[in-house]
């Protein structure tokens, strides 16, 4: 028996919005520790890694490890039937071929349930090595989304260049070029407004706008985003989901032909 209850359905809606650009379907691996999802997009350029800790749920029970393959568009349809502040309970029997989502309104006057067929997805599990990154940048998630959106108008790629002075986002295209420089904040009123750079060595890498834009769909989940970079390894873009877990995206850099 698997049962996971989350007080506000909106959190799950935000998670779905953040991954459905990149993935059509995905396996949700459920264990006592929580729910994990790890999948590459079809072109194997990016990887989504989601972890929701069991202690972040209002109620969580997982008697046996369970992998549920789900179509994310179908899941989104179901979650669109819930109100943001509905409590959601995800339920499945051991070895079941369906999963049930139950939504309860705050006053309990409306209870709805939706049963969805599970899919048999043959997804491979990947071991992600621990990397000591040359540069780790923390910045407001909204600012990162804004920069990616702004620069995407001008080119297909964004060069991210990190030094101890700050981080620079650059692009160029048919109409010209654009640069946005962010300095490390020396003082800030709120922690979520800070730009913090931990640099061992300067790094400059180029990434496709299309994927960076997809990653910023996670912006509603977190105030801050963390970018981790080293030469010749994938960029990690991480959003911490408060009290619940994290959503990480990995993106292969563009390389010289």
């Amino acid at each position: 028996m698997f049962e996971a209850r989350l007080i506000n359905s909106v959190t799950f809606k935000k998670v779905l919005d953040a991954i459905k650009d990149l993935l059509n379907e995905a396996s949700f691996d459920c264990s006592e520790a929580g729910i994990q999802l790890q999948a590459m997009d079809n072109s194997h350029v990016s990887l989504v890694s989601l972890a929701l800790r069991s202690d972040g749920f209002d109620k969580y029970r997982c008697d046996r490890n369970l992998t549920m393959g789900m179509n994310l568009a179908s899941m989104s349809k179901i979650f669109r039937c819930s109100s943001n502040d509905d409590t959601v309970t995800i339920k499945a029997q051991d070895d079941a071929d369906t999963v049930t989502f139950m939504f309860e309104s705050k006053k309990q006057e409306k209870i709805s349930d939706y049963e969805m067929k599970l899919m048999n997805l043959d997804q491979e599990h990947l071991g992600i090595p621990d990397t000591d990154f040359s540069c780790v940048i923390r910045m407001p998630a909204g600012e990162f989304a804004r920069i990616v959106r702004d620069l995407s108008q001008f080119g297909e790629s964004i060069v991210i260049s990190c030094t101890k002075e700050g981080v620079k986002f650059s692009t160029s295209g048919d109409i010209g070029s654009a640069n946005v420089k962010l300095a490390q904040t020396s003082s800030f009123e709120k922690e979520e407004e800070a730009v913090i750079i931990e640099m061992q060595e300067p790094v400059t890498l180029t990434f496709a706008c299309q994927y960076l834009n997809s990653f910023t769909k996670a912006t509603p989940l977190a105030n801050q985003v963390q970018l981790s970079m080293s030469d010749n390894v994938p960029l990690v873009v991480e959003y911490q989901i408060p009290d619940l877990g994290h959503l990480r995206y990995y993106l292969a850099p563009k390389i010289e032909e």
Binding site: V45, H125, A252, E257
Partner: peptide
């Protein structure tokens, strides 16, 4: 020019 890299090879298949 630059081409898009792939993730294959960065991660080990378990």
């Amino acid at each position: 020019g630059q081409v898009q890299g792939r993730l294959d090879g960065f991660f080990q298949v378990l």
